[in-house]
């Protein structure tokens, strides 16, 4: 009887420990540094997981300063007649890719003043969340500086 009680007590303590570990989990907040989320100094796996968080829950990151290293990609939307520029990263298996759109602080002419598709770029700017007409919304880095 006492052994069973001890086993149950241990399990209860264990589950409380796990739950408290979840409760104390807090993200890296703006620590006064210029860049709040520096994806450029993270490993590929971490970058992929962090960008996933930004895409799935963009409201948490609005206004934060982001730095990101990835592959340059662009896409022209026929409906809105707007060209989107993106910084794309691949996961460790290279079967999935995701990225963030960006908008440069000083507009440039495409394609003359942009890097070639697939070139490695580093962008730095403010994270925002843009809603378009048909209810579709997407995260975008605004006022961005681009290096390549």
């Amino acid at each position: 009887m006492s052994k069973s009680f001890l086993k149950i007590a241990l399990l209860v303590v264990f589950s409380i420990f796990c739950s408290s570990s979840i409760c104390v989990a807090k993200g890296p907040d703006g620590s006064g540094n210029k860049v709040d989320v520096d994806l450029a100094k993270m490993s590929g796996t971490m970058v992929y997981a962090q960008v996933y968080q930004m895409v799935m829950d963009p409201r948490k990151f609005i206004g934060k300063q982001i730095r990101m290293k990835g592959i340059f990609s662009s896409y022209f939307d026929d409906e809105t007649k707007r060209r989107f520029y993106g910084c794309v990263i691949q996961d460790a298996l290279a079967c999935c890719s995701q990225g963030l759109a960006f908008e440069l602080s000083k507009p440039r002419k495409y394609p003359k003043e942009y890097p070639a598709e697939g070139a490695e770029i580093t962008i730095e700017g403010t994270f925002d969340y843009e809603e378009v007409e048909d209810g579709v919304s997407f995260p975008i880095i605004k006022n961005a500086e681009m290096r390549y």
């Binding site: 979840i22 971490m46 992929y48 996933y52 799935m56 079967c95 999935c96």
Partner: peptide, 10 residues
Amino acid sequence: GSTSILTLKA
């Protein structure tokens, strides 16, 4: 499961 363990919610 390339990164699925790193994309969990609370």
